[in-house]
Design a protein around this nucleic acid. Structure first.
Lengths: 156, 156
DNA sequence: CGCTATCTGAGAATGATTGAGAAAATGCCG
DNA sequence: CGGCATTTTCTCAATCATTCTCAGATAGCG
């Protein structure tokens, strides 16, 4: 997707993304190294969460263990989030405050995951309802995850 | 299918649950053996998805490999569903058409998962909105997963 | 009863992920 | 530019959940 429809406060361009990533890493005492930049760029380029193999291919020249290690560093720094799906690999994406809040279309047949943004008013209603619910349950709500599970265009 | 609280089929009592499980297994050419009954009963007793270790304890006397094997059989038969969380084990629960549609409160700090039911009107609105969205994306929507992530009472 | 297909349990195998330590890179100070 | 400290990367082996294998036990059926 790159450059097309990105919304609001999210990092609009690569430069902003980089400075933001760098400063979050710095906050945890880590540097924004070339490997990490490669990973972040690959994630920024994709419009869906990437698995380790995809990431290795997308970045070209990063050792597998480095990818694992650096992703976990980036996760600790709050730059990427691990998305656990039903298929065998963990997947990674940039955190929502870098990319905007979104959800996933999960294909039950091929395992593909694609991002979707639900209309703001739906999201707002949902947030309100969930906040009430959480309060009633004595649960401190941080965020929600909503996945649409079904069959993607390609598989049907 | 998800908006309805339960279509006539939902198993209200253990006996009904057993016949339903047996017939779904039969439909896939499998038997409802004692091990499988133990697993189903344990899941029915719990008010939250169980991990393999929990399940082994709750059933008392089932070999680990049998648990894995039988859960996957039960999954194929449409009796149980695998719930993937961010913590290390997969968790299992009875499928929604046996227990009623519900969501999860996921504690990001201790990994505990608890079931919640959101108010019917919220659910209905959400379903409607998601259906529109899915259609627009050329995605054949089967059901949705909504998890509330935060901190549970015990951890805060 | 005996046949046959299915199920069980113990352990081995698999495959994703992580850890530990050595090697390399980078930053810093003069 | 050197030397030293710190951080990062790489290699390789370990770990851990999950799946597979296979010999023996069981159930359903004639």
């Amino acid at each position: 997707m790159s450059t097309r429809h990105r919304h609001g406060k999210a990092a609009h361009d690569v430069a902003a993304l980089h400075t933001e990533a760098a400063s979050r890493l710095a906050a945890v005492g880590q540097r924004f190294t070339s490997n990490r930049r490669l990973l972040v760029d690959a994630l920024a380029r994709a419009d869906h969460p990437l698995s380790i193999p995809e990431l290795l291919e997308a970045t070209g020249d990063v050792a597998q263990s480095s990818a694992y290690r650096n992703l976990s560093v980036l996760e600790r720094a709050g730059v990427v989030a691990k998305v656990v799906t039903n298929d065998e690999w963990a997947r990674y994406e940039l955190t929502e405050d870098l990319t905007g809040h979104h959800h996933h279309l999960v294909c039950g047949s091929c395992g593909a995951v694609r991002d979707v943004v639900v209309p703001g008013d739906v999201e707002a209603d949902l947030d309100r309802a969930l906040a009430v619910l959480a309060k009633r349950e004595g649960f401190e709500l941080q965020h929600h995850r909503l996945d649409l599970v079904g069959v993607c265009k390609k598989c049907s």
